[in-house]
C-alpha cells in the first residue's frame, strides 16, 4: 500500500498530486496490478483533505485505465505505465546539462534559465492540447 503526501506550496491541485503520485509509483514499480489503493477514508484520515478530492483522483485513474473500483472492496490498480528507461533518462539529462552550460556561458542566471524552462514547457504542452 502506498501513502500519499501533500505539498501545499506546489500550487498543483490536490487531486492532481494524488494522481501524479500513483503515476510515479507505477513508473518506479512501487505499485503493480492487483495492488489496492488506500480507501478515501484512510487518505482523508491522514491528510485532512476532502474525500471528494480522493474520489476525483481515483476517477481520473479509472478513466486512464490504471485503476478500477470494486464495490465494497476498494480501488485496485489494474494497469501499468511504461517504466522510464534509465538509458533514455541519462541521454536527456546529458543534453540538458549541455544546454545549461551554454546558457550559463551566455551569461544567464538561474532565474533566467527557470523562466525560459517554464515558458518552453508551457508552449510545448499548450501545442499538445490545441
Amino acid at each position: 500500500m502506498i501513502e500519499f503526501q501533500l505539498d501545499s506550496t506546489s500550487g498543483v491541485a490536490t487531486y492532481l498530486q494524488l494522481v501524479q503520485q500513483v503515476h510515479q509509483a507505477l513508473q518506479l514499480g512501487l505499485l503493480e496490478p492487483g495492488d489496492q489503493l488506500p480507501t478515501a477514508q484512510q487518505v482523508v484520515g491522514k491528510l485532512a483533505i476532502n474525500p471528494n478530492t480522493v474520489l476525483k483522483a481515483y476517477r481520473d485513474l479509472e478513466r486512464e485505465g490504471l485503476a478500477r473500483a470494486r464495490p465494497g472492496q476498494g480501488t485496485f490498480i489494474v494497469g501499468t505505465l511504461p517504466r522510464t528507461d534509465p538509458a533514455t533518462q541519462a541521454r536527456f539529462l546529458e543534453s540538458m546539462a549541455k544546454w545549461l552550460r551554454s546558457a550559463r556561458a551566455a551569461g544567464l542566471g538561474t532565474d533566467d534559465i527557470e523562466a525560459i524552462y517554464r515558458t518552453a514547457v508551457r508552449n510545448c504542452f499548450a501545442e499538445g492540447v490545441a
Partner: peptide, 14 residues
C-alpha cells in the same frame, strides 16, 4: 486543528 479536520473528513467519507 489538523486532528479535528482529519476526524471531520473521516466522518464526511463514512
Amino acid at each position: 486543528r489538523r486532528e479535528f479536520l482529519q476526524v471531520l473528513m473521516e466522518v464526511v467519507a463514512e
